[in-house]
């Protein structure tokens, strides 16, 4: 579904060098690395908010390397969620549908259906500033999922949540994955990997060091973080 091939990104003095990985359809994939490892740069490159200097990015067999941001069909949920503060939850969720000139009736139906699915039906007429952390997360997910992206990109989606909300979100992400959504999840938290990952790439200093399932990585961990995957509660 997503093929990142030999991608090099320069960001000042830092660089991601020849990153390559492939995510299969319906897979829950993790990019695991510490802060400053280059994982967010890769996510930005896939979403189109950052240019790459070398390599290619393919989504569903289509080369999107040089496609503009609004034509890529990959949905990103930013770490700060980036809900539009001047729009009510309904308008936030329906934003992508409005861009596609869908009838008002259909937009109304789809937004209510998505809101019900994520348990946020009661929030539709509220502004983002009035929402709790968990509600923010659900609205951001709903807003991205409604566009039916080929790949859902999640930038540290659980990092700002308390432990109970985290558990709730993990369950929600599992549900979304089970419905067939392909997901690329970027994090530094190996606990999340243990709960959700099908496969993982370990990234350090701009290099992808290892790729595999949890079991494969646990057998020969390439670094401290990889070592924790096999037993996250050490």
């Amino acid at each position: 579904m997503l093929h990142v091939k030999d991608v090099t990104i320069y960001a000042g003095t830092f660089a991601v060098n020849s990153a390559t990985f492939r995510i299969n359809k319906g897979e829950y994939y993790f990019l695991l690395g510490e802060s400053g490892s280059g994982k967010s740069l890769l996510l930005e490159a896939i979403s189109g908010t950052r240019d790459i200097q070398k390599g290619s990015i393919m989504v569903a067999g289509e080369d999107i390397t040089h496609q503009p941001l609004n034509k890529r069909n990959v949905g990103i949920v930013f770490q700060n969620l980036a809900l539009f503060p001047h729009k009510k939850v309904f308008k936030n969720i329906s934003f992508s549908l409005n861009c596609r000139k869908i009838s008002k009736k259909e937009i109304d139906f789809e937004v209510h259906q998505m809101a019900e699915k994520l348990g946020i039906s009661k929030l539709l007429q509220r502004y983002p500033e009035t929402l709790s952390g968990g509600e923010h997360q659900r609205v951001a997910l709903a807003r991205t999922l409604i566009m039916k992206p080929a790949v859902l990109l999640l930038d540290e989606p659980l990092s700002s949540l308390d432990i109970l909300l985290k558990e709730e979100m993990v369950t929600l992400l599992k549900d979304i994955h089970q419905q067939g959504q392909t997901i690329l999840h970027v994090t530094h938290d190996y606990h999340e990997v243990a709960q959700l990952a099908d496969r993982i790439s370990i990234i350090e200093n701009g290099q992808i060091l290892q790729t595999g399932t949890r079991l494969e990585i646990s057998k020969a961990p390439c670094n401290r973080l990889a070592n924790r995957i096999s037993n996250p509660f050490l």
């Binding site: 979403s47 609004n70 949905g75 930013f78 980036a82 539009f84 861009c99 991205t144 566009m147």
Partner: peptide, 18 residues
């Protein structure tokens, strides 16, 4: 304005003008 708001809009399919 946080640039991610503009990126988010474009990621959701909005043209630069929209």
């Amino acid at each position: 304005i946080d640039r991610r708001l503009e990126y988010a809009a474009m990621n959701l399919g909005a043209s630069p003008a929209k």
